[in-house]
Design a binder for these strands. Structure first.
Lengths: 135, 135
DNA sequence: GCTTGACCTTACCATGATGGGAAGGTGCAG
DNA sequence: CTGCACCTTCCCATCATGGTAAGGTCAAGC
């Protein structure tokens, strides 16, 4: 099948399929006489794997590792689990950071009347005029 | 003062200070005879504001709005609060998305023995072989 | 005076993952 | 034969940031 149908089936844009090929994440596609790329169910399977990994937030480098582990019948499930838990830790870190931002902002927003007057603890907090929380 | 000291005082790299100037987030700096940029306490204040907003996850566009609101003595605190709450909603969205990823991964990881054997629900889940949760 | 070193200047390239668009070839249906 | 949908490669943009190169400035020390 052509790249368009492969894209539709996997949810990976044609643009990205070509990109994944260019960076070696998927092998060079077969070509028809027209020079159009030609995909089979094996390719679709691999692209689907990549898309699901992307949806779970894995980076391209991590996906490269996952693909290697997928194709390695000798590897132990501990290898996969270790990679996954490392990624979970990255997610936890990001979530924690965003949560801290949210908390700070919510605190500032709570202190802001949000009315027609100009006085605003949010702006004051950003301006760093150290009007602090207690005033 | 020179850009290096401004950087040290504000925690914004010299690189980024020049960048902020180039995109109009801060006004063009005064220049000495040497063509070196020259900063005063007013600039330091503005850069500090920007850095704190960045630390809270605001985008450059949002920061541009915040700076405008900061300088507008006519604006109501409601304007600032609205922008902030919109940003909080963005953060909530990101946190929710990351949380979903984390949950899915944790479920897969829990199902994985993580021993020397190759069988691995994580890889199977990514491969989309629909072995699902219930099997 | 001259060197050294810290600092500054501009300009270009890179990241990661993705999209947009141009300019042109292919293939099928009317 | 025309039109249209699809494909090809190539270049550029995003967002915020860093790196590096090639060169100018300035103060301290010899």
């Amino acid at each position: 099948m052509q790249i368009g149908e492969a894209s539709r089936l996997t949810g990976v844009s044609a643009k990205m399929i070509r990109h994944y090929e260019s960076i070696g994440l998927i092998p060079n596609a077969d070509r028809r006489d027209s020079n159009y790329r030609d995909y089979g169910h094996h390719d679709i399977h691999r692209l689907g794997f990549i898309r699901r990994a992307r949806d779970l937030g894995f980076s391209m480098d991590e996906i490269r590792d996952l693909l290697r582990l997928w194709g390695d019948t000798q590897r132990s499930s501990a290898d996969v689990k270790a990679l996954t838990q490392s990624h979970i830790a990255e997610l936890d870190q990001k979530i924690r950071l965003l949560g801290e931002m949210r908390h700070t902002l919510a605190t500032l927003a709570d202190a802001c009347d949000g009315d027609h007057r100009p006085d605003c603890p949010i702006i004051e907090g950003l301006a760093g005029t150290e009007l602090h929380a207690g005033n």
